[in-house]
Amino acid sequence: MEMILALAIGVLTGSGVWLLMRPRSFQVIIGLCLLAYGVNLFIFSMGRLYVGAAPIMPKGGFVDPAAYADPLPQALVLTAIVISFATTALFLVVMIASRGTTGTDHVDGKEREQ
């Protein structure tokens, strides 16, 4: 389980980083999305992995924390999901506006000089 998730985080991060450094704006936006998945999973995994132990408790009283999933990384990732949606939306609009005004989808607004 841990091995698989770690590999998944690695693949997502690697693809995201590669796309981040590409010259076309759409590549960068997809890269950001992939990177966001990778980072979210990474933050999430900081609380270790629990199978079948949701952070929902019975009503009342004290509980034994060991029996539940760590809620803190989950709360952090929830925020991160929202923020990455917001940045994607913002970047998307900048991207199509830049395509309109510069006439190219290169991230610098002009093709590289050969």
Binding site: E2, L5, A6, G10, G14, S45, R48, V63, D70, P71
Partner: peptide, 26 residues
């Protein structure tokens, strides 16, 4: 980058957790 992240994630996942702030919230 990908290999590094895998290594870091793996190292953390396979280490026993210390006490988490999450326990307080629970």
């Amino acid at each position: 980058c990908g290999l590094g992240m895998t290594a870091i994630a793996l190292a953390i996942l396979l280490t026993r957790p210390g006490s988490s702030v999450g326990d307080w919230f629970l």
